[in-house]
Design a protein around this nucleic acid. Sequence first.
DNA 1: AGTGAAACATCTGTTAG
DNA 2: CTAACAGATGTTTCACT
Lengths: 139, 139
Amino acid sequence: MDKFDQQILALLRADARLPVSQIAREVNLSRSAVSERIRQLEHSGVISGYHAHVAVPGEAAIKVYLELFYNGGRCEHYVELMRVFPEVRRCSGISGETDMLVYIEAPSMLRFSEVRGEIENFPGMQKVKTHMMVKDWVF
Amino acid sequence: MDKFDQQILALLRADARLPVSQIAREVNLSRSAVSERIRQLEHSGVISGYHAHVAVPGEAAIKVYLELFYNGGRCEHYVELMRVFPEVRRCSGISGETDMLVYIEAPSMLRFSEVRGEIENFPGMQKVKTHMMVKDWVF
DNA sequence: AGTGAAACATCTGTTAG
DNA sequence: CTAACAGATGTTTCACT
């Protein structure tokens, strides 16, 4: 994890679709070297994925935390199911009784209800506890 | 913004580097159609960017949600007290029994314990429930 | 570790039908 | 939408620093 790796990470953090050839130019390494470094960074888990940042249609008028309780199935499974909703911004597996904590931003109460309804009907879903966010400070 | 767009968004959210050709296969559209749709989604701002998710070693090694239960005092009061900790990233007043949900990122377990200890000793604090984040997906 | 070059498959953008 | 083409890109391998 030297200076080159850090430069590569910074570039991919800004634009995950930057071509290897261009990265090579900017950090002054060959394509093969950059390819190999990226492969290492991915394999070692430093880069956990590449994701498009999708804006919530409308605006985030409603902010909610859902507590999910389900039986069987790994959390990865449910994450894949919830990924289809742009309103789902974050899924966190946490210690304690709750299986997963899901943060949702929706443009309206109606839309939120739709999303919540679909999540409740996921196979194996046992309970969905809703926590409307009434105040919020982000630092 | 029809069903196809939503499918495309879900795929790019999961893997920003998915080739257009493969997306086309999965949603049963032609490459040109998918290319055009992605172009529209980018230009209209629905897709605001593509980013590598990087786990920086040492930075935010520990992610935790705290459930705060206190008696008396408004949440604004406690927010002011917690603002002194850079590790406190978000404070949310939510509906339900829990008075406040606090998201914390700390560089080490030791440092987190210190912060948690201080929060527990805030005047009026009744209970602090810790939820270590063991898995996490941010979209 | 990195370079440069080559070879090959794949992706993309752009045409034309 | 399909088909086809040209150019760019990713990946791998190799000989050589």
